[in-house]
């Protein structure tokens, strides 16, 4: 024990100084969801499988859909990504999602125009 402890003096601390030094997320990381409105066919499988009801698909017009994702409800399991038959949803590596304003936790994706 003594040897290991004394050896630590010459080692760099194992701590990551977080805000200054950010970690690279792994490739399979499940972060904030991204929605591609043009691929959506409105089958609503994601809504059906979401364990917390964080995602809502609204029909805007013929073949046009928007997704409303409530980040405070989302548990980042990415089941919706697996459920989607057209790959309209994607998990990004974005992790820093904390907000002071609750309204900013509601993310709306809709096709432009």
């Amino acid at each position: 024990m003594l040897q290991e402890v004394l050896g630590s003096i010459f080692k760099k601390p194992a701590t990551n100084l977080y805000p200054a030094q950010k970690l690279e997320m792994p490739d399979k990381f499940r972060g904030k969801l991204k929605f591609y409105p043009e691929r959506c066919i409105g089958c609503k499988m994601c809504m059906r499988d979401c364990p917390t009801g964080a995602i809502t698909i609204n029909k805007l017009g013929e073949g046009k859909f928007e997704a409303v994702i409530d980040l405070s409800k989302c548990i980042y399991c990415a089941q919706c990504v697996d459920s989607c038959p057209k790959k309209a949803l994607e998990a990004t590596k974005e992790v820093e999602l904390a907000q002071l304003d609750k309204n900013k936790l509601r993310v709306v994706y809709s096709s432009k125009g």
Binding site: P26, D27, K28, F29, R30, I75, Y76, C77, A78, Q79, A91
Partner: peptide, 11 residues
Amino acid sequence: ATITGNRVNYG
């Protein structure tokens, strides 16, 4: 995290 995408609750 590398294999499953998360440190806990691997999904």
